[in-house]
Design a binder for these strands. Structure first.
Length: 937
RNA sequence: GCCGCGAUGGUGGAAUCGGUAGACACGAAGGACUUAAAAUCCUUUGGCCCGAAACGGCUGUGUGGGUUCAAGUCCCACUCGCGGUACCA
């Protein structure tokens, strides 16, 4: 009976569809479990074999949970807004919606072939007005709330207004515009002039997590700093809760650490330094209050608000020149060229403890966005201050005993203080505490906590994103009424910025808000009395992905993002799978967004993702042919990889990428190679045996055997240009979805990055074939002890593996069990039916067919997970009582038919162990698996 | 620089609580079947050594130390690789 995988897979996929086997209900008396994959951005290239890795893992877990009797929510959708579709639209004029939908269709088709148990009826896509309705709605809520730092939660802006009305007699006298301006800095979604990452090539601003080393993450274009009026989200207000919440999550330590670093909590103190000849002091932030006696200068960030006040007339020209120079530099230049620069302001500060006069400088190594944008410089104990001091010849005062600061600073937070007045003789840790106490008591400063996490810039000067439900009246923003949402993305003639530099929505004709009639109208009607302009920016990519997991709970609800009942039932994502690259972006924003909704009482859990697993990246495994470029080279001759180290070819070959799809087990298909590209049409080879003739005479009948050309290989990123992209469709066509699923898991631990190497897929395919063959003539006979042992070993192992996400080690267990059962010629239903159920999460199609061959009723996906009975696993052993040195009596457990002299040998072999055990008097210790030594004294 | 992770045969990897290192698979070599090939099946496969034979000996998990009756696993120092982050005061 042949294993016809494509027939089996098509049959069961159709059957599951027909019976809506994966449709999930929100009403069930079963326990609930929510398994989620990070939804993909549907790129034009389609899925490659790396994408499904996490999906397969989560699918296995979902199916297992279902077999364990849970009502499992396992949905899939699409993060449909994104730059590539818009860039493509600018180049080709094709509407991004069209290309996006096309890509989504392709993704769905590819995903369906792999046999995932998604409830497709719950599919979401972020560019659907029914979906972004709730993205816009959440934004409106953020606009209408402020963060109360005392209560540590978001509250309606109306409460703030009420407070102003009550406490501030001025409030009533303010104009509406003035009132709005006053409220703006409190709102959770607010407009502000901020320094942003502007990417000229993309024509948009980017969030911090979208920039890496001065280049945009998408596209790698240079980014520069600019001050612009932008929508921002007050993520920083949630920093303490985002940090604290990590302790309650079942995430890996490395991911939590990444988030902790990104949030960047640091305890320190703000201190005030008086300015010589001025009334107002300046405030600095430091974590080293203990070093205040060693301050020899102060430094301001170039953008600091103190700069203009502290610059004296005689230094003004020099300062302005420096500021202009700093402004001209791109972020990238600043990172690449880190030489010491700076300029003296002409002013002096007074050290509050020593009363020394210390010069105030400006330098771009101080950042305006962190702390107060001004520092006290302690060159002896900070390497950056040290470099600055050396460059400008400023004094260095060592504060820690025994620290040599003649060559470099001593940055470590340890040692005994000296030259430090009241702190002398104290350990650094105690000195910090004492100085904090001192400055608090004297009013010089106060203890504060600083966070590195900044507010998220929420505007994008792009077309393909969610429009802001905002219009402008008298220069101030107003939200559209909630019942008018969603504000649909309008059509535009062009996807580029307008001639006047407005974002692409500037091209939209129907883009004005008629306040009285509550509808979108032609922008020519704008009169700023009843008809107003609408916001031209759109929301960033993370807007739609921040709460999508809630939408799956109740995807067709037109009244709310998610109903109270649906949210109360599913609560939160129990298991979330995705790449670790989202650690500082999506996973922060989602947590923030969820906490905000929690504050509003709209969701019942304040953390969205209880357990999170990062699957590793699948890298490409490229293959190479080696073109001969030595003497007399025709440019047409390719040397087999095993020969390129030989003297005649060494350093005379050039590696060339070859399509991995025409290479099998590193052996090149030479016919396919010649047909691959015209330039290889006449390719000639030196084969693995060192000869050039393509065939070998066959001793039988003189027919010809082709010879082998071996390709080299390397691990690289999976990409078209390296010709190492493997398409899951091809693998499914050749081996079947079940083999693909099994093999992706077999490749290695889920969380590790590893190259995709098709070599070896035959192994798991063979396993399925062999397993399949056991299901030919099924008997009702009673299983033997051996058969039961084999099965229950497998149950124990596979159950453990799935619960611990160690999917890769299950496949060998299946192979071993299959082998044992095959050797026992086992064809018994009592064994084979549970075997099929165990296999079902991994290889659902073949398992379904196997299950039905055992006369299983219904679907295998609804069967009950078999239970492991330890009684079947007991080793067949016998106990031998032994005397040792006349003092210690122990029982040796070993296989039943071990001869007597063998037992004695075993005892002697463990003499040391026995002696040790006797001395420490333990009860029972495993010496060697299967041979247990019980010591009784 | 800082934080995190990793290093085991020709290859991917296993060893789940400190207890027979190399499971399982690929590849390779040899064999069976076959006119031949594919498919399938069987044997061998970390290295070295002794031997007529073996349930034989030695060595072996990046390097150097340590703890332990026992270390791939724990501790210290280092080397290399990967990922994140970077003037965060």
């Amino acid at each position: 009976m042949e294993y016809n995988f494509s027939e089996i897979e098509q049959k069961w996929q159709a059957e599951w569809d027909k019976q809506a086997a994966y449709k999930v209900s929100n009403e069930s008396n079963k326990p609930h479990y929510y398994v989620l994959d990070m939804f993909p951005y549907p790129s034009g290239a389609g899925l490659h074999v790396g994408h499904p890795l996490g999906y397969i893992a989560s699918d296995i877990y979902s199916r297992y949970k279902r077999l364990k009797g849970f009502n499992v929510l396992h949905p899939m959708g699409f993060d449909a807004y994104g730059l590539p579709a818009e860039q493509y639209a600018i180049q080709t004029g094709q509407h991004p919606e069209k290309t996006t939908n096309k890509n989504i269709d392709r993704y769905i088709e590819q995903l369906r072939k792999i046999g995932f148990c998604y409830d497709w009826s719950r599919q979401v896509k972020t560019c659907d007005p029914k979906f972004y309705h709730w993205t816009q709605w959440a934004f409106v809520q953020m606009y209408n709330h402020y963060y109360d730092p005392v209560a540590q939660k978001a509250k309606p802006i109306a409460e703030l207004v009420a407070r102003f009305e009550k406490e501030d007699p001025h409030w009533a006298t303010l104009s509406e515009k003035e009132q709005q301006e006053r409220l703006m800095p409190y709102r959770i979604a607010y407009l502000a002039d901020t320094k942003v990452n502007w990417c000229p090539a993309l024509g948009t601003v980017l969030a911090n997590d979208e920039v890496s080393e001065g280049l945009s993450v998408r596209g790698g274009f240079p980014v520069e700093q600019r001050v612009m009026r932008q929508w921002c989200l007050r993520v920083s207000a949630y920093a303490p809760r985002l940090l604290e919440g990590l302790d309650r999550l079942d995430w890996t330590d490395s991911l939590k650490d990444t988030q902790r670093n990104w949030i960047g909590r640091s305890e320190g103190a703000e201190m005030q330094f008086n300015i010589k000849g001025q009334d107002n002091p300046i405030t600095i932030f430091t974590t080293r209050a203990d070093t205040v006696y060693g301050v020899t200068f102060m430094v301001l960030a170039p953008e600091s608000e103190y700069v203009s006040r502290l610059t004296t007339d005689e230094h003004r020209a020099e300062v302005e020149e420096y500021l202009a120079w700093v402004k001209r530099r791109t972020e990238r230049e600043r990172i690449a060229d880190r030489k010491v620069t700076g300029v003296f302001t002409g002013s002096y500060a007074i050290n509050p403890l020593t009363n020394a006069e210390i010069p105030i400088y400006i330098s771009d190594y101080v950042l305006s966005g962190y702390g107060t944008g001004a520092i006290m410089a302690v060159p002896a104990h900070d390497s950056r201050d040290y470099a600055f001091a050396k460059h400008f010849n400023l004094p260095v005062i060592p504060l820690i005993e025994g620290a040599d600061v003649s060559e470099q600073s001593f940055d470590a937070k340890e040692g005994i203080m000296m030259n430090s007045g009241i702190l002398n003789g104290l350990e650094v840790k105690d000195a910090i505490a004492k100085m904090k106490e001192y400055i608090t008591n004297t009013g010089i400063g106060r203890v504060t906590i600083n966070y590195r996490l900044r507010d998220a810039i929420f505007s994008r000067q792009r077309y393909w994103g969610e429009p802001f439900p905002i219009y402008y009246k008298d220069g101030m923003p107003y939200t559209l009424p909630e019942e008018c949402l969603p504000l649909q993305l309008p059509e535009v003639k062009e996807f580029k910025p307008t001639a006047t530099g407005e974002p692409p929505l500037g091209h939209a004709a129907m883009w004005a808000w008629d306040e009285q009639n509550r509808k979108v109208v032609d922008k020519q009607l704008i009169d700023n009395k009843t008809v107003f302009p609408i916001e031209l920016c759109t929301m960033p990519g993370f807007a739609g992905s921040s709460a999508y997991y809630l939408r799956y709970m109740d995807p067709h609800n037109d009244e709310a993002l998610v109903s109270k009942q649906a949210n109360d039932y599913w609560r939160q994502v129990d298991l979330y799978l995705g790449g670790s690259e989202h650690a500082t972006g999506h996973l922060i924003y989602s947590r923030f967004w969820n906490k905000f909704l929690y504050d509003l009482g709209l969701v019942c859990e304040d953390e969205p993702f209880r357990k999170l697993i990062n699957q590793g990246m699948i890298q490409g495994r490229s293959n190479f042919v080696y073109r001969y470029i030595g003497e007399g080279a025709s440019g047409n001759l390719y040397i087999s990889y095993n020969l390129i180290g030989n003297p005649e070819y060494k350093d005379k070959v050039q590696p060339i990428h070859v399509d991995v799809n025409i290479v099998h087990n590193d052996v090149l298909d030479i016919v396919a190679f010649r047909n691959w590209m015209p330039e290889y049409k006449n390719a000639e080879f030196v084969f693995a045996d060192g000869t050039s003739s393509e065939v070998e005479d066959n001793p039988y009948l003189g027919s010809a055997m082709p010879k082998q050309y071996i390709c080299g290989w390397a691990v690289e990123k999976m990409s078209k240009s390296m010709y190492n992209v493997v398409n899951p469709d091809d693998v499914v066509a050749k081996y079947g979805a079940d083999t693909l699923r099994l093999y992706e898991m077999f490749l290695g631990p889920l969380e590790m990055s590893k190259p995709w190497d098709t070599n070896g897929i035959d192994g798991v395919h063979r396993f399925l074939k062999k397993a399949w063959n056991m299901y030919e003539n099924i008997s009702d006979a009673e299983p033997t002890a051996e058969e039961l042992k084999s099965l229950h070993k497998l149950i124990k192992k596979v159950t453990w593996d799935i619960e611990n996400f160690s999917f890769n080690t299950s496949i060998p267990a299946f192979m071993i069990a299959q082998n044992e059962l095959y050797t026992l010629k086992c064809n018994k239903r009592a064994i084979l039916e549970p075997f099929a159920i165990l296999l079902a999460p991994y290889a659902p199609h073949i398992a379904e067919e196997m299950y039905h061959r055992c006369n299983g009723q219904g679907f295998v996906i609804d069967a009950a997970w078999p239970e492991c009975y330890e009684a079947y696993l007991v080793e067949d052993t016998q106990k031998y009582p032994v005397q040792f040195n006349g003092k210690v009596r122990f029982t040796l457990e070993c296989p039943k038919d071990t001869p007597k002299d063998e037992v004695e040998k075993l005892v002697l072999a463990h003499e040391d162990t026995a002696r040790y055990l006797a001395g420490n008097a333990p009860k029972k210790v495993i010496v060697v698996p299967g041979r247990i030594v019980n010591i009784v004294i």
